[in-house]
């Protein structure tokens, strides 16, 4: 009944026997112990579980782990430099107070990084639309929008 799932997570090859019904987010949180990826809803709205799969932001709660077979996965734990220096998008969130309780933050940052790759100088409207899949109840988005705008510019160098 169990199936073997293998993928690369934050640059490390991982492999485990799991029940087929194991969600990718469950695999990441429970099997790998990477609890920075959060679960905030059960209908794929909140985006707290956003990670990168093969470079694209996706919701890890909306797929079974097997769908990430052989994929290259990056979670929030894999974003800062190995020496702990924050990624420019993380730094922008800090600088612009783009987080409060921190629960939606990993998903916000992961989506923002993916978005910024194709939008080095986004307009406010573009940023707001890009956040359609991420809910935040604390910040009112004001400072998240500022942070992503600045973070995108910083990423573009």
């Amino acid at each position: 009944m169990a199936v073997r799932v293998s993928m690369t997570v934050n640059g490390k090859a991982v492999s485990a026997e799991v029940e087929p019904r194991t969600l990718l987010v469950t695999f990441i949180r429970e099997h790998l112990g990477l609890t920075g990826t959060h679960v905030g809803c059960d209908t794929a709205q909140c985006g707290a579980c956003t990670i990168h799969m093969n470079g694209k932001a996706i919701k890890a709660c909306s797929m079974v782990a097997m769908q990430a077979q052989d994929a290259n996965v990056v979670t929030i734990e894999g974003v800062a430099k190995p020496d702990g220096t924050l990624h420019p998008m993380q730094a922008a969130f800090k600088e612009h107070h783009g987080l409060q309780c921190g629960f939606c933050t990993p998903g916000m940052v992961m989506n923002a990084i993916d978005f910024a790759k194709s939008h080095p100088n986004p307009s406010e409207q573009e940023v707001r639309e890009a956040l359609e899949g991420n809910l935040c109840r604390c910040t009112g988005y004001h400072n998240i929008v500022k942070a992503i705008t600045a973070g995108a510019k910083a990423m573009a160098g």
């Binding site: 929030i76 924050l86 107070h97 990993p106």
Partner: peptide, 13 residues
């Protein structure tokens, strides 16, 4: 800037 941000931004909360 907030002292708590680093842990939240790196998934260490």
């Amino acid at each position: 800037q907030r002292k708590e941000d680093y842990r939240f931004l790196t998934g260490s909360g």
